[in-house]
């Protein structure tokens, strides 16, 4: 197992060599991810692992992809999507144009889920979904809108639990074990690389979703990311976090009103 000291060396080297700053990541999970990769790729000493990362930029890119957690699913937490459908979209519907930011979108399952909700509310045509992630390879997957067919049973159940009334299989074409989602959905999406550690606000949004991303950050970096979202939200815009994340204890919370028990906050001023 990698020691804390080796982890600090790695974090420093990654910053020096590539400009990526992981120092604000949660130590417990970052260490576990690095350790997992180290074992997975059969390294036996830290020095050779470190050299490989520093000398081989392709391996570095694999490292970023493996170290950031990219486990997600469509309509994860159906109740959350039900609230989006019934409480949030009707409010956004009154706007001439709807801008949504999926921060830390990973392989895109959430983006396609929200696009489906927008389509069913007849709002997709006037919406744009900006989807960003730190890792280019996962953005490439997201852009294609192709997911494993074996997951569709689960996603279809999630979709129905979220209040979906259609036949979920309408939304994709099945082929060779893959489900490709329609271009009517992806044509409203913009994918780009964005690092919550170092990049700035790039637009103003009516809804920002950042679910189960902040859990990988320490409190300081969480605060930074939350202020970035604050700067990027229009007045009366919504911020949606994961079910175990909160804006409590931050200085911005006084300007936000929580939707009852949901992990959704509305910017009041």
């Amino acid at each position: 197992m990698i020691t804390d000291q080796e982890l600090d060396i790695l974090i420093n080297e990654l910053y020096e060599s590539y400009g990526y700053d992981f120092s604000g990541y949660s130590k417990a999970s970052f260490k576990r991810r690095v350790d997992r990769l180290y074992q997975l790729d059969g390294f036996t000493n830290f020095q050779s692992f470190l050299s490989k990362i520093i000398d081989d930029s392709d391996y570095f890119s694999r490292m970023v992809e493996e170290i950031t957690v990219n486990i997600t699913e469509m309509f994860r937490d159906p109740h959350f999507y039900r609230i989006l459908r019934t409480e949030i979209l009707p409010v956004l519907a009154t706007k001439p144009f709807i801008r949504i930011w999926h921060a830390g979108c990973s392989t895109g399952e959430e983006v396609y889920s929200v696009a489906i909700l927008l389509k069913e509310a007849n709002l997709l045509e006037k919406a744009l979904l900006y989807a960003t992630d730190i890792s280019p390879p996962v953005l490439e997957v997201a852009r294609k809108g192709v997911f494993p067919l074996r997951m569709m049973k689960q996603y279809s159940e999630n979709y129905m639990a979220s209040g979906g009334k259609k036949d979920f299989s309408h939304y994709y074409t099945a082929n060779y074990g893959l489900a490709k989602f329609g271009e009517d959905l992806s044509s409203r999406m913009v994918f780009s690389q964005h690092n919550l550690v170092s990049d700035r606000s790039f637009n103003e949004f009516d809804l920002i979703l950042c679910r189960n991303v902040l859990i990988y950050f320490d409190k300081e970096l969480q605060e930074r990311a939350l202020h970035l979202f604050d700067d990027s939200l229009a007045k009366l815009g919504y911020l949606a976090l994961g079910t175990k994340e909160t804006i409590k204890f931050t200085s911005m919370q006084k300007r936000y009103k929580q939707l009852e028990k949901e992990k959704i906050w509305r910017k009041t001023h």
Binding site: A28, S29, V69
Partner: peptide, 10 residues
């Protein structure tokens, strides 16, 4: 190590 719990969806 600073007495906080973290969650992880990996």
């Amino acid at each position: 190590k600073n007495n906080l719990l973290s969650l992880d969806t990996s």
